[in-house]
Design a protein around this nucleic acid. Structure first.
Lengths: 160, 160
DNA sequence: TGAATATATGTAGTTAACTACATATATTTG
DNA sequence: CAAATATATGTAGTTAACTACATATATTCA
């Protein structure tokens, strides 16, 4: 019985520990960019990198791509617009849509960031290539949850 | 080169994905407690469970134990005090310290929660027992980071 | 074709963690 | 032993995500 209680503590703590780990990684990411003298925030990456790949996108499709709720994307876009890294224009076909793209400045910044990415790649590899690979574990958990949610799984045991 | 860019995108996305995963787990946790008719928030668990193990603790030692900054703990304690699940008293020896403990109500709640923990344990095991175990991966990454931070590792490559 | 529904964007407010600062009490040290 | 330093608690404000709601435009269907 006592063992179960201890396990529960460990398991329930997952969400907190995940969050702390993510904060730590983000903060160090910021410092790495600073060390390269680049004025860049890690949270900008998903938007900028997606625009780099797809060139122009609407707010919602961008949100879907990076996996954020659209208001989060809007607030990132506001920052990026202020930094002159992106600009937007109306879609001529569907006028509800706002099409977002990188500015020249944004494209230039992305290219100066390439050496930084390489450093980040190497450092991250060092950290995550442990016996149980964190990246792979996250992928596996996400896939497992997609099949059947945590709640649905718990419900099976509740009904027993 | 293109492969590196893609990797960088994936790696940098870790923090975001960790955060989303943790949110999801927390929300489902809340719903599981609801399904059992228990008025309990997952975020309360670390404090209550620690007090269950250690019986009385000061604010800072509690914060260290659960791994939160002390203001976060203080705000949790405020909620728990309002719910009458914990109470506090002054330390007679070191009067700076506030000693926190479970109320009878808190102890009762913890005992009604045991069957819920069992369900949560089983559901979590299903989800995390993939090829790369998420819990173990987190432990390993935390241990690796303790040895040498992400930033320190990156600095080695920067200096090269 | 126009009424109902769906989609795209945007705003406001919430949450749960954080850091920075303030104050009170203890402990250490010159 | 008193001045300097360290520790414990607390408050205020920040951050980066979220949900809920509002509005405008597009699409569908009776």
């Amino acid at each position: 019985m006592e063992q179960n209680v201890i396990d529960a503590s460990g398991l329930l703590a997952i969400s907190t520990r995940l969050q702390r780990l993510s904060d730590q990684i983000r903060k160090d990411g910021l410092l790495i960019y600073k060390a390269f003298g680049i004025d860049f925030q890690p949270k900008w990456f998903p938007v900028l990198y997606t625009l780099h790949k797809k060139s122009t996108m609407s707010v919602v499709s961008l949100s879907d791509e990076i996996g954020y709720a659209h208001p989060s994307t809007i607030s990132l876009l506001k920052e990026l617009e202020k930094e002159k890294l992106i600009r937007s224009k109306k879609d001529q076909v569907d006028t509800r849509k706002r099409l977002v793209e990188l500015t020249e400045q944004g494209k230039t910044l992305l290219s100066t960031m390439e050496p930084v990415w390489e450093v980040i790649i190497k450092a991250t590899a060092e950290i995550t290539n442990t016996e149980n690979n964190l990246m792979k574990a996250i992928n596996e958990v996400e896939a497992t949850l997609q099949e059947k949610s945590f709640l649905q799984r718990a419900e099976v045991y509740i009904k027993e």
